[in-house]
């Protein structure tokens, strides 16, 4: 294994190093092409073309303000109201950044979980069931079934199965975050975007959450923004390193952490950043 200083010979490292996933077992589900994101006149993302492999976990890392969260939120157009997103976002061959795409239908396929757990002020059961009801799933047994499966997949079922009527606001942080994951997967998305989902959790909850994510990847394509490099190393297959609005390096996670090609990446993953 190289130490980062071994490869850090000034002038010899490339400025960017992008290796898109090519694993035939895990074809691309989502990709960005020519993506530019503007907040007003300020350009927040200008080089961010990535391909995401199906049923794999891809981590987006980088310092705060590097654009990784903006990038993630652009993928299911959560930033539509505050930012201008140019370029194409290809989801299974369809550009979902076209104006006539129905964003609501699209977001059911590309779901999102946020930094701070945001359970609704409803019962645990209703947190999961109510979006389904709005989409016409009204049969009680069907709802029960989806609630149970989602909670099981999010590894929360055993803790809450006897108190599904309890207010979700009474859950602990880790439980609440897993409820949010259960809520997101209940609408059966294809891709799951997670924006630093563990940053508000204690170490035990974090490690439980990571286990959950590792299990979830057999069903979903997961893209996770994280500050925590150990976390990226533990759970992801691919890692993209963001710096000042660009993806500087993209490769398999093991490459990024053991053999980074770009000086800045190497500094960041070895903790010499800034």
């Amino acid at each position: 294994m190289f130490m980062s200083s071994d490869i850090a010979k000034p002038g010899t490292t490339p400025e960017r190093h992008i290796v898109q996933p090519t694993d035939a077992q895990h074809p691309t589900v989502l990709s960005t092409e020519g993506l530019h994101v503007f907040y007003g006149d300020k350009e927040a993302i200008y080089e961010g073309d990535l391909k995401f492999a199906r049923n794999q976990i891809t981590a987006l890392i980088g310092a705060s303000g590097s654009g990784k969260s903006t990038f993630l939120r652009s993928l299911n157009r959560m930033n539509d109201r505050i930012a201008t997103v140019k370029g194409r976002i290809m989801y299974r061959g369809v550009d979902i950044n076209q104006p006539d795409i129905d964003v609501y239908e699209m977001r059911r396929r590309i779901g999102m979980v946020f930094q701070r757990p945001n359970p609704f002020a409803k019962s645990i059961y209703d947190n999961i069931a109510f979006a389904l009801r709005l989409r016409g799933v009204t049969a009680k047994n069907k709802l029960d079934e989806i609630v149970e499966t989602s909670l099981r997949q999010a590894a929360l079922w055993d803790q809450v199965k006897d108190e599904l009527d309890k207010s979700a606001l009474a859950l602990s942080g880790g439980q609440a975050q897993r409820l949010c994951i259960a809520r997101a997967i209940a609408v059966k998305p294809d891709v799951l975007l997670l924006d630093e989902p563990a940053s508000a959790l204690d170490p035990v909850s974090t490690s439980q959450l990571e286990d959950t994510l590792l299990k979830l990847k057999q069903h979903y394509t997961i893209i996770i923004v994280t500050h925590n490099m150990q976390q990226a190393a533990r759970i992801s297959e691919y890692t993209a390193f963001f710096n000042q609005g660009r993806v500087l390096e993209y490769d398999t996670t093991s490459q990024i952490f053991t053999n980074p090609q770009v000086q800045v990446t190497s500094d960041y993953v070895s903790g010499n950043f800034g």
């Binding site: 061959g93 369809v94 006539d100 795409i101 239908e105």
Partner: peptide, 21 residues
């Protein structure tokens, strides 16, 4: 697996949510 054309059609159909909006 659906063809991209099929998927595009599905994603461009105006959903109930869009009408409610």
């Amino acid at each position: 697996t659906k063809s991209p054309e099929q998927l595009e059609q599905e994603l461009k159909r105006r959903s109930k949510a869009a009408k409610l909006e």
